Computed example of a mutant assay.
Amino acid sequence: MIIVFDECGQGAAEYILLFGGVIVIAIATLLIYTEYIKTTNPLNVAKDLNSVRESVNSG
């Protein structure tokens, strides 16, 4: 009895597992560091926008 190993889809399956793992790690990282990003972010869009408008209007 001859056993034939068909490995046509193996590469695609490995890439799917690899990208799935990367996505899971990225989501876990975002969930862990959400509060850190919210509390330490020095950017204030409204303040920065007003600053740019004032500098453009003043010439």
Rank of each mutant, 00 (worst) to 15 (best):
S58N: 11
I32A: 08
N50H: 09
A26C: 06
E35I: 04
K38P: 00
V24R: 13
M1V: 14
P42M: 03
S55C: 02
K38Q: 07
F5Q: 05
T34E: 05
E7H: 15
S58A: 13
P42N: 04
L30I: 03
N57S: 06
A28V: 12
V24Q: 10
L49K: 14
C8V: 12
I27W: 08
I27N: 02
I25F: 10
C8I: 15
L18C: 10
L31A: 09
I23Y: 11
V52L: 13
S58C: 08
P42Y: 01
K47H: 08
G9S: 12
D6E: 11
E14Q: 12
G21C: 02
N57R: 06
Y33F: 12
L17K: 07
A12N: 10
I25A: 15
A12Q: 10
T39R: 06
V52M: 08
L30G: 07
K38I: 03
G11F: 09
Q10Y: 11
I25M: 13
I3L: 07
E14F: 09
P42E: 00
G21W: 05
E35G: 06
E7I: 14
I2A: 15
K47T: 04
K47P: 00
A26L: 07
Y33K: 10
T40W: 02
S55R: 13
F19K: 03
L31W: 12
G59K: 07
N41H: 06
I37N: 02
V56M: 10
Y33R: 06
A13H: 15
Y15I: 12
E35R: 09
V56F: 13
L17F: 05
E54P: 01
N41I: 02
V22N: 02
T39V: 00
V56A: 05
A26T: 05
N50A: 15
I23D: 07
I2F: 13
G9R: 13
I27A: 14
G11I: 10
E54C: 03
I37K: 02
N50G: 14
A46G: 05
I3W: 01
T34D: 02
K38S: 04
S51R: 14
N41R: 08
L49E: 05
P42I: 00
G11N: 14
L30Y: 03
G9I: 04
V24P: 01
I16Q: 11
A13T: 12
E35Q: 06
L43D: 01
T29E: 00
V52P: 03
L43A: 14
D6W: 01
Q10I: 14
G21Q: 03
Y33H: 03
N44G: 05
L31D: 04
K47V: 03
I37P: 00
Q10L: 08
L31V: 11
A46M: 06
S51G: 09
I16L: 12
D48I: 07
V4T: 15
T39G: 00
T29R: 03
